[in-house]
Amino acid sequence: MKRTINLTINEEAFEAEAEPRLLLSYFLRERAGLTGTHIGCVIGECGACTVLLDGRLVKSCLLFAVQADGRKVLTIEGLAKNGALHPIQEAFVQQYGLQCGYCTPGMVLASYSLLRDNLNPTEEEIRKALGGNLCMCTGYVQIVESVKAAAKKLQQS
């Protein structure tokens, strides 16, 4: 039994049909064509599919798309505005907060959620907030540095 699902994705209305068993992560990728939401484990452990749902950070693989019906989603594609990177994205490029980049959208969105509530996080707060995002490349040092640099940028702006 397919259902019509209405979402606001990155501030634009989006409607598509899906079976109830379709996960939000696949809905975003396959129906909405937003492939920046990555799939790493599909059991909520790696954080690559992290998005914001009604402003709250969630793992989109732990949610059926129907559960998100009528709600607002922010994906990595919604961060840069008018061709300009978001300060967090800039910081990740400048501080080398990435290697293969597969975990990066999730890392950036988790940082976004953290810095929205706390513009001056301690290293421990950063590590706690991003603890749900796995990265096998970086050893996380430069990711933490990127978040710190992003916080500085946001404080100044």
Partner: peptide, 19 residues
């Protein structure tokens, strides 16, 4: 220097195999 493929990766534009 900055890495040459940094922008694609922070925006989600990079095309991995699933993409």
């Amino acid at each position: 220097v900055q890495r040459v493929d940094g922008f694609d990766k922070v925006t989600g534009e990079s095309k991995y195999i699933a993409d």
